[in-house]
Each structure stands twice: as C-alpha cells, then as structure tokens.
C-alpha cells in the first residue's frame, strides 16, 4: 500500500512537471520560410547534415515563380528569407513605402550573368534601335544589362529599348523569334541559347567585377525581431558553405543523396565560388 502511494505521488509529480508552462523536454522546432528560384544548395546541405536541426530550426523552401512574387512575399511576411539576386533588393527595398529589405550574405561570389545576342549582331553598336529582353524593365538583371550597355556607349530608350518578357526561358524564346535582339541568359539558358544559334557576348564581370550577384535577403524588421534564429540559420548555412568549398565532391554526394538529383547536377548546384559568404565591400 505504501509503495502504491509512493508510485501515485511520483506519477503526479511527473505529470505536473511535464505540463507546467515553460517546461519542455522536446526542443521546439522553429520553421523558417525561404523563397528561392531554385533550391538553395547550402541550405539543403545545412539541413541534410543535421546542423539546422541541432539549432532547433527547419526550413521550408518555396520556389518563386517571379522576382515580383518573391519580393512582395518577403515584404508582406509570407517568406522570412529570400535567396535572390542583389538587383531585387535594390529594386524592392523601401519601394513605394514598403518594407526595408537588406542583404545579409552572398550566396555565390562567382555568379556570372552571360549576355547573349541574336546571330546577326556582331558588335555592340548593332544593338542600336533594337529591343532587348528583360524580366522586368527596372528589376532583376535589367540594371546590370543597362550598366554593361552604358559602358559600350548605349543608353536605354535612346539607343535601345527594354521589353519585359519574364524569366530566361521566355527571354530566349523572344530572341529566337526576333522579338528581342539580346538578353541576359543565366545558366543553363546561356548554353541553350548558343545551341539555338545565339551568340555569347560576354558577361557583367568586365564592367561590374565585384557585383554581389546572389544574396540572402531579409526584411530588416523581421531580422531584428528574430536575430537569434537568423544567426543560428546563418551559422549553419556558413558551415555548409565552408565545408562545400573545402570538399565539393563530398558536398555534391550529400546534396545528391538529399535531393535525389544526379551527382553532376548536384555538383553544378554548388556555389561556383564561395568566399565565406561576405558581401564584397567594393560592390
């Protein structure tokens, strides 16, 4: 009888401890919502290696259909983090009184933005009077293309026009049927363009060698309110980047296993150049 009473008391104590507010034996998992144009390799590696889970974090990635949807979603709180092009941060931060958006890390310092032109274009001056294809006229890679064309003596709406066709597949299609004479065709569409008869016409590095390219962007007020989670995410992400840079073959195997993509595709999804994730100070 005495033993039964003791057992009953112990059960009651355990119950009180388990249900007492603030008492938890299972670590709460916070989910970060990420918007990206393709699954971010380093985030996937941080997830696969268990370092995000060890920090009490999980991520849910939504593939963005357009930069407009992505940046509006980041502004209104649908997404916590956007893996995006730096151009989009410039274009959307504080736009029409909207949220302040800031870049916190560089996803790939080897980002190339290849420029392609139709086969009849053999010199930059041949683009005079011609339409060029962009995602949107004032966002995405349009600012980079505009800057490169300016370096070659061509001014928007004086020497050429921009026509918004959308993503790289739509831009390549517009070039093929003559609605556009040039565009930035980011990989793998640059190679597809060459295969379709377009000409590779260099890239942004001749004019903007330190342009940030791909970045992680956040809403400034959300980041400040969630600094602990963001720091934990960034720590795991940087760890994945450093490991991938030191042993890309092992990282590719882990990425292939985690995503089910073929090994060569996993290898090409890794950053071309991961310089520690810091945004280049010279811009």
């Amino acid at each position: 009888m005495r033993n039964r009473c003791w057992l009953l008391v112990m059960c009651m104590v355990c119950t009180i401890v388990l249900v007492w507010p603030g008492t938890s034996f299972a670590q709460e998992v916070r989910v970060l919502h990420i918007s990206a144009f393709a699954q971010d390799a380093l985030t996937t590696l941080a997830q696969a290696s268990g370092s995000l889970a060890a920090a009490g974090l999980d991520v849910q990635t939504t593939i963005a259909p357009s930069s407009t949807e992505q940046m509006q979603g980041l502004s209104d709180g649908t997404y916590d983090i956007a893996a995006t092009a730096f151009d989009n941060v410039l274009a959307w931060s504080g736009r029409t009184g909207g949220a302040t958006i800031v870049s916190i890390a560089q996803t790939d310092s080897g980002t190339l933005l290849p420029i392609a032109v139709r086969p009849e274009i053999s010199d930059w001056s041949d683009l005079r009077g011609k339409p060029l294809g962009v995602d949107a006229v004032d966002t995405a890679f349009a600012v980079v293309l505009r800057r490169v064309l300016r370096a070659h003596g061509l001014e928007l709406n004086t020497d050429y026009t921009f026509v918004p066709f959308g993503g790289p597949a739509a831009r390549l299609a517009a070039m093929q049927d003559g609605r556009a004479y040039g565009a930035i065709l980011n990989p793998p569409f640059d190679a597809m363009g060459v295969a379709a008869g377009m000409r590779a016409f260099g890239n942004q590095t001749e004019v903007l060698p330190d342009y940030p390219g791909g970045v992680l962007a956040v809403r400034a007020d959300w980041a400040e309110a969630n600094r602990q989670d963001l720091d934990a995410f960034l720590r795991a992400w940087l760890q994945a980047g450093t490991s991938a840079a030191s042993d890309p073959d092992a990282a590719a195997v882990m990425l292939a296993n985690a995503t089910g993509v073929p090994l060569p595709a996993a290898r090409s999804a890794l950053p071309v150049a991961f310089n520690g994730g810091a945004i280049q100070e010279r811009g």
Binding site: S93, I101, I104
Partner: peptide
C-alpha cells in the same frame, strides 16, 4: 534607387559579423 544611392542602405553586415 528607392532607398538612395548608398550600398550600405541595402546591406546589413551585422548578422554576418555575429556568426562569421
């Protein structure tokens, strides 16, 4: 540009500094 011409208006390096 919406927030002015300075690069640092669009970059917050403090998070990177926290963890790097």
């Amino acid at each position: 540009l919406p927030m002015g011409p300075r690069l640092d208006a669009y970059v917050d390096a403090s998070f990177f500094d926290d963890v790097s």
